[in-house]
Amino acid sequence: NKFNKELQWATWEIFNLPNLNEEQVKAFIDSLRDDPSQSANLLAEAKKLNDAQA
């Protein structure tokens, strides 16, 4: 299933962003679980936040 692979990839990527704190990671993962179809958008937002906090 396409969404499942995207969800797994986005989850792994978010867990490995070095500049997000635990609460931010949890919030993004919760959002992914709530709406897996938004995984690409949520990953992009997480990466933006990660870069901003570098």
Rank of each mutant, 00 (worst) to 15 (best):
Q53F: 07
A46H: 01
A46M: 02
F3G: 08
A44L: 11
A10H: 06
N16H: 12
D30F: 08
W9L: 14
I14L: 06
Q38K: 13
K47S: 05
K48P: 00
L17N: 02
K2H: 15
N50G: 01
E6Y: 09
N21R: 12
T11M: 05
V25K: 15
F28D: 00
L32E: 00
D51P: 00
W12Y: 12
L32F: 03
A40V: 14
I29E: 02
W12H: 12
L42K: 05
N41Q: 05
K26H: 10
E22W: 05
A46R: 00
L49W: 05
F28K: 00
Q24L: 03
Q24E: 04
S37G: 10
S39Q: 07
E22V: 12
L20N: 00
Q8Y: 13
E22R: 11
N50W: 00
N16R: 04
L17F: 08
N4H: 13
N21V: 06
K26R: 13
L43G: 01
A52R: 10
A52E: 12
N41T: 13
A54V: 10
A44V: 09
A46D: 00
E13A: 08
N1K: 01
K2I: 15
W9H: 13
Q38P: 01
L20Q: 00
Q24A: 02
A54L: 09
E23D: 07
D51E: 11
A27T: 14
A46L: 03
A54K: 05
A44G: 07
E22M: 15
W9P: 03
I14V: 06
S39V: 07
I29M: 12
Q53H: 05
F15S: 14
S31I: 14
D35I: 04
D30R: 09
L42R: 06
P18I: 04
E22T: 09
S37Y: 05
V25W: 03
P36N: 02
N16T: 12
P36L: 07
E45Y: 08
V25N: 01
W9E: 15
N19I: 01
Q8I: 08
N41V: 12
Q53N: 06
P18Y: 07
N50M: 01
L32T: 02
K5N: 15
L7R: 01
E13F: 09
K47N: 08
N4G: 06
I29D: 01
L17G: 00
L42N: 02
N1Y: 01
F28E: 00
N19W: 05
W9S: 06
A10E: 02
K48N: 12
L17P: 00
Q53S: 06
N1R: 00
L32Y: 03
F3T: 05
R33A: 09
A40L: 14
A44S: 11
N16I: 06
N21Q: 09
T11S: 09
N50I: 01
A46K: 00
S31R: 06
E6V: 07
K2P: 14
D34W: 09
Q24D: 04
N4W: 14
V25G: 02
E45T: 10
A40R: 10
A27W: 15
Q24W: 01
N50A: 02
N50K: 01
A46T: 00
R33V: 14
W12E: 15
L42F: 10
L20F: 01
S37Q: 09
L20T: 00
V25M: 07
T11N: 05
S31W: 14
E6P: 04
D30P: 00
E13Y: 09
F28W: 03
E13V: 11
K5V: 13
S31K: 11
I29Q: 04
E13Q: 14
N41E: 14
K2M: 15
A10W: 04
V25F: 02
F15Q: 15
K47P: 00
V25T: 06
A54Y: 09
A46V: 03
L43D: 00
Q53T: 06
A44Q: 10
N21G: 09
A46S: 02
D30Q: 12
K47V: 08
A27V: 13
D35V: 05
F28S: 00
K48L: 13
V25R: 13
F3M: 03
E13W: 08
A54F: 09
K2Y: 08
K5G: 10
A46I: 03
E45R: 05
Q38H: 06
S39A: 10
R33W: 15
E23V: 12
L49K: 05
L32P: 00
S37E: 07
D30H: 08
T11G: 02
T11A: 09
N19S: 07
N41I: 11
K48G: 07
Q8D: 07
D51V: 07
I14H: 02
P36A: 04
A40G: 11
K26A: 10
A44W: 07
E45F: 07
F3L: 08
L32M: 14
E13D: 06
D51G: 06
N19P: 00
I29Y: 03
E45G: 04
N50Q: 02
E23T: 13
I14F: 04
P18E: 11
W12V: 09
E13K: 06
K26N: 11
L49A: 04
N1Q: 05
K48T: 10
Q38G: 07
N1V: 03
Q8L: 13
V25H: 05
L7N: 04
R33N: 15
D35N: 13
N4V: 04
N1H: 05
P36M: 06
D30Y: 07
A52H: 10
S39W: 15
F28R: 00
K26Q: 09
T11Y: 14
S39F: 11
K2D: 15
F28T: 01
